[in-house]
């Protein structure tokens, strides 16, 4: 893999509706022996968000891009294009970057496998994977994809990781409540730390 890095850029929506899928992707990435990274990991307001994203993309040889949240919303209803934009930057780095950047690999996820043809037909020919909005399926897709890039022989399959994740999710709110915390108090960095320490002990 490119310069031995195990950093995975997670390009997803961060809103509450999408959180179950985002958290599932983070869990599967850690469980597979990689380090998930997202724009949420820095809160330095002096740096532009897009500059942060570009730096993350440069540093990550692998990218998981979920383009499923493009529905129109708001008044007037407009689609969300951040994820397709960041996918474009990632593919551009792979196309025009140096030797390291050219080794980038991407997993593109959507709700349905061929839906992207209606809003992003230029990426036709890419292998798009569907999760159907189901965190367990997203975990399976991520785990199966990352296994190819893992040097560990014993990385578990998606089904087992999904079972572990279901138990984790079932118990996490109560564990947080015992410390007077609500899930919304847990930042991306906190969640990644909790998952990492938890997974290391199983």
């Amino acid at each position: 893999m490119a310069d031995g890095s195990r950093d995975v850029f997670v390009n997803c929506a961060f809103d509450a509706d999408f959180k179950p899928i985002f958290d599932a992707i983070v869990f599967a990435t850690v469980r597979s022996g990689f380090r998930p990274r997202a724009a949420l990991e820095t809160d330095d307001s002096s740096e532009s968000r897009f500059a942060k994203i570009q730096q993350l993309i440069e540093e990550c040889p692998l990218g998981i891009h979920d383009i499923s949240r493009v529905e129109a919303g708001g008044t007037p209803p407009l689609p969300r294009f951040n994820m397709p934009l960041e996918l474009g930057v990632f593919l551009g780095a792979k196309r025009f970057g140096d030797t390291t950047q050219k080794r980038k690999r991407a997993l593109i996820l959507d709700v349905e496998r061929y839906r992207y043809q209606r809003f992003m037909s230029d990426i036709a020919g890419q292998d798009i994977h569907a999760h159907g909005g189901d965190p367990a399926v997203a975990i399976s897709e991520v785990a199966n994809w990352l296994r190819v890039y893992s040097s560990a022989a014993n990385v578990p399959g998606g089904k087992r990781i999904a079972e572990e994740y279901a138990l984790f999710c079932e118990q996490l709110p109560a564990r947080l409540a015992s410390l007077d915390l609500h899930p919304s108090d847990v930042s991306f960095n906190d969640f990644r730390s909790i998952v990492s320490v938890f997974v290391e002990a199983i």
Partner: peptide
Amino acid sequence: TSDGVRIIKPPRGRGNL
């Protein structure tokens, strides 16, 4: 992990907890 997967230490000190 018990099945041999090495888990990367996340960066410290950047969360709320």
